[in-house]
Design a protein around this nucleic acid. Structure first.
Lengths: 224, 224
DNA sequence: CGAAATCTTAAAGCAAGCTTAAAGCCGCAC
DNA sequence: GTGCGGCTTTAAGCTTGCTTTAAGATTTCG
């Protein structure tokens, strides 16, 4: 379970992140609306916890923009203000749930569970490009008859490449979105995973190729 | 990642440049507004860090002029004054972000990341002149049906020539903008790349020519 | 023509990226 | 607790192709 927290109060954000991590969630934290949008846009999260009052873009704007860009990730809005106006605004702009600060950690957990369960029951997505498919539930790479399991990191990278098929994705972008923006991983790590992925693409007999653009990044191309 | 710093306080400018270089950014530093404008205008930077109080032209004027000339490079303004008036002025004139001095290096890094990330995802530009196009994302040179990949240096030079199409660009300018203002490269290096570029222009069957102006520089002309 | 500037090319140098093996880590089963 | 298996990370050697150098050919201008 992979959650994005967008909250400018660093202490609060870290506290929430810690609670979630203790409950076996994988968590990314960012501190302003613009980052929230660009992270959320990757579409790799199971839920987003989003503060309303944020630098650069407020929470409403972020949700609205995410929905406009066809990102369906469930969003829980957080706000100190409990005015009715806010609630309406938040839900209108595409949020799925709403909590006022302060809140009990247990309540957040419960709402997250309910949101992600709902999603798990209804949605069964599969990302596709060219002759390959990605089973978003089982993390399998499928091409015609053949299929092979991807590890979580391989899977995340494949998902981002597919989401940006035909466009160039830089190593920095991959590192930030897969490992988190403050991580220390080396470029070589990405290179290694690209290598693994290429091997698996080949194994399932796909024509899709990962093109290297030296000093720029990688791009998914429909081979042939 | 290529950043331009425009800051008249030499000590501060160097300190910031050092920090960025340590983080694998390529950095150019200039110390007044006029230089800031002419460097920024090349359009080769991923971001510009721009002080407000500068000799010759202040930061607001520089941004405004850059935008007027259709340069979309993200700009972070720096200022000691934190008056509201300044903030509004900076953002109005086309800056993308704003920081007050003194600031934590980490904050600058974070803002740069967020700015360049936003740009990388949204913008998909292509520079054109005559019958040729430059795909700014994949670094490909395109002319009609044909296209060919350019290396980074070739690409930078092509970009500058196109940005200044019809005008003369000196070798010194090219060296400063492509290799950095304190680099030691020989003129012959530029000549070699011009030669490579001419060959690739011909390969894609373009009519555009790189005209040599002896002892002056090069100019991109629409052939025919 | 001769000197200086520029062009072209081949080859050397170097950095980016690829691949693979091995070590590390973590959860799970016994 | 121990050991196994799978995923992740690290590290090293290797490959590829961009960059620079250098030397000779060519052009331009006085």
């Amino acid at each position: 379970m992979y959650v994005l927290i967008v909250e400018d109060d660093v202490r609060l954000a870290d506290a929430v992140a810690q609670i979630l991590r203790n409950n076996d969630y994988q968590v990314d934290v960012v501190h302003d609306g613009a980052d929230g949008l660009s992270y959320g846009e990757a579409g790799i999260y199971d839920a987003i916890v989003l503060d309303v009052m944020l630098p650069k873009m407020n929470g409403f704007e972020v949700v609205a923009e995410l929905r406009r860009r066809k990102v369906a990730t469930p969003v829980i809005m957080l706000t100190a203000r409990d005015a009715l106006g806010d609630k309406v605004g938040g839900l209108d702009s595409g949020a799925d749930d709403y909590m006022t600060k302060p809140f009990a950690p247990a309540e957040l957990m419960a709402r997250l569970r309910s949101l992600t369960r709902r999603q798990g029951e209804v949605v069964f997505e599969t990302a596709e490009f060219g002759d390959i498919k990605l089973d978003l539930e089982s993390c399998d790479l499928i091409c015609g008859e053949k299929s092979i399991h991807l590890g979580f990191k391989e899977f995340s990278i494949a998902k981002i490449l597919i989401a940006n098929a035909g466009r160039v994705v830089s190593k920095e972008t991959l590192i930030e979105k897969v490992w988190g923006y403050d991580s220390e991983v080396e470029d070589n790590n990405v290179e290694a995973y690209i290598s693994f992925l290429r091997k698996k693409f080949e194994f399932v007999g796909s024509k899709v190729k990962i093109t290297t653009l030296r000093k720029v990044g990688y791009r998914l191309d429909e081979g042939e």
